[in-house]
């Protein structure tokens, strides 16, 4: 990979004694689409909230997040305000409550235009209208004056996307952008994100529960479990040769390609509590291949192939000469 756009190293987050992230390493190249998958609570959202400094004050964050080589973790507020929305934009799961209920749509989009592109007044309004058009909101001119409660969930998510595009970011982090929406709308939103990425050349991080969704939209996948990345590979490779037992479990839980999607839940057992982490590999208690050695230390990620890494002792063993 050439110089990554975003390079996260050793990112750890602790909410008063309960570790939510335990050392995340992740790199995103300019323009690439990366999927971040894992069960609920594994730290997908926290990773990006921490990277952008959006966690509440009591969260203790350590590690490093570099944007085009420049450290942004713990950067001054003025620096972060220019990064957020201007270079890295983020959209969220629940579009209805993610927009301010007392401000008109147009004003909320125009606010981002003012912050990152210096547009005000008529110019901002015209550009906001163009953005609403671009994200496929019908009758954009009139919609500028609507309030969020007057739009559907799918339309609100389109507004969120328009707002994210306003700053012409180099990276869009979409945190489960379709979970709260109807299935047909989900497909439309994913298609929109893909199209926008091709048009603008921005990179995309798509956070999802759903490996199927990620496979359609992304080039590379990172699988998270209990605050760590346990496997990372290109989409085709991950589906063809999953190495980590957790990934294998996820793929086993995936319905056939033409069947209906359902949440990843077929792995027996449940995710450990943040303050009840097992020693060693966090997945060991649920792992069909667990051995005594798994409890001894947290496995580091190793490259099983170029562009394919897994954090599992079995992967390490396979690499060693017998």
């Amino acid at each position: 990979m050439s110089e990554p756009l975003v390079a996260i190293r050793g990112l750890a987050v602790d909410f008063g004694g309960a570790p939510a992230l335990r050392g995340i390493d992740l790199a995103i190249a300019p323009g690439e689409a990366l999927g971040l998958v894992g069960e609920s609570g594994c730290g997908k959202s926290v990773t990006w909230l921490a990277a952008l400094g959006l966690l509440p004050g009591r969260a203790r964050v350590s590690g490093s997040v570099r944007l085009a080589g420049e450290e942004i973790l713990g950067a001054a507020p003025a620096v972060l305000d220019r990064v957020r929305g201007g270079r890295v934009a983020m959209i969220f799961q629940d579009p209805a409550s993610s927009l301010n209920p007392v401000h008109r749509i147009g004003r909320q989009v125009a606010e981002a235009l003012g912050l990152h592109r210096g547009l005000r007044g008529v110019a901002a309004r015209a550009e906001a209208r163009r953005l609403l058009d671009q994200v496929g909101i019908p009758d954009a001119g009139r919609r500028l004056d609507a309030y969020p409660h007057e739009l559907s969930g799918g339309q609100n998510q389109r507004v969120m996307i328009a707002m994210a595009l306003a700053g012409q970011p180099e990276l869009l982090v979409a945190d489960e952008p379709t979970t709260a929406l109807d299935v047909t709308i989900q497909a439309q939103i994913l298609e929109l994100l893909g199209a926008l990425r091709r048009e603008t050349g921005m990179a995309l991080v798509l956070i999802s529960h759903d490996l199927g969704v990620v496979a359609e939209t992304c080039e590379r996948v990172a699988v998270m479990y209990a605050g760590r990345i346990v496997e990372e590979a290109r989409v085709a490779r991950l589906f063809a040769a999953p190495t980590h037992p957790y990934t294998q479990g996820l793929l086993g839980a995936l319905p056939p390609l033409d069947g209906p999607r359902r949440p990843l839940s077929a792995i027996p057992g449940s995710v450990p509590e943040p303050n009840g982490m097992p020693p060693g590999c966090a997945f060991a208690p649920r792992c069909p291949h667990a051995a005594a050695a798994c409890a001894l230390g947290v496995p580091e990620a190793v490259a099983v192939e170029p562009d394919h890494a897994a954090a599992c002792l079995r992967a390490v063993r396979e690499l060693l000469p017998a």
């Binding site: 969220f92 993610s98 927009l99 301010n100 606010e111």
Partner: peptide, 8 residues
């Protein structure tokens, strides 16, 4: 959070 995330 959205407002902060867009750089306000």
């Amino acid at each position: 959070r959205t407002a902060s995330a867009k750089g306000v």
